[in-house]
Amino acid sequence: MSVVEYEIDRPLVRFWLELSRSRLAVVGLVSTTALVLVAILAPIIAPQNPYDLTQIDFLDGELPPLSISPSGQTYWLGTDAQGRDMLSAIIFGLRASFTVAFSAGALALVAGTTLGLIAAYARGRIDTIVMRLAEIQMSFPAILLALMLLAVFGRGIDKTIIALALVQWAFYARTVRGAAIAEREKEYVLACRLLKLPRWRILVSHLLPNVLPPLLVIASVQLASAITLEATLSFLGLGLPLTEPSLGLLIANGFDYILSGQGWISFYPGVALLIVIVSINLLADRLREMSNPRLKR
């Protein structure tokens, strides 16, 4: 095994070889890539643009799967109350969910990690301020935060992203700080200090790689929870605009149909969401193992 690693120095190839040791991870990678592609290419591959109000007709609403519209179009997965083709709505919803979750996640990860590392390394007053900020933030229910943002700025995709990032940064910050403090006391960091390496170098090249494993666990969970949280906000009447539903909003809309026998309205978006999250996690699991030097034999 280790022979292979040393022989190949092209990082991408090495990455692929290592990743592909887990068949499930390959499945995760392929399906995540496929889903991202679907999301990016949504306007091309979706049978209908569900955001274009002139293309949808509420008179075609709540049609069961495989119905055929007056214009001859087949609704493979049925339609929702507004007459949106569920398949198209799911494809566009995927796009919206990815956009929101990835943007919010990236924002939160960068902000949280930076603050967490700084807190762990600087200690003292900065540490206190950052951690108390994290506490305030985490004690602030996401819903209330979102409602306040909404009140001041209005409903929309950008506001939802900001709200989710504000909700999530503290998780990264806490975790990074916790892990970094434990690492900081280890011999190699002490050695670096003795070598008088600049602080930022110790932070970036030594502490950061070592806090990555727990960070990836959190990130995979947080990415999923960003999508779910957005769904929950929609469920509570916040979140994305009604006419541009994400997967979460589609499921939330389906909440009203749970008892009415029109199960497809929330079922298919639910399945789509499950596939998305499971794919991300299969991949993330493997990435986590790979990034963890302690798991290498």
Binding site: L53, L147, L150, R155, G237, P241, L242, T243
Partner: peptide, 11 residues
């Protein structure tokens, strides 16, 4: 062309 802005009643 109508763009919707919806919100909770309290807002």
């Amino acid at each position: 062309t109508t763009e919707l802005e919806t919100m909770p009643h309290s807002v």
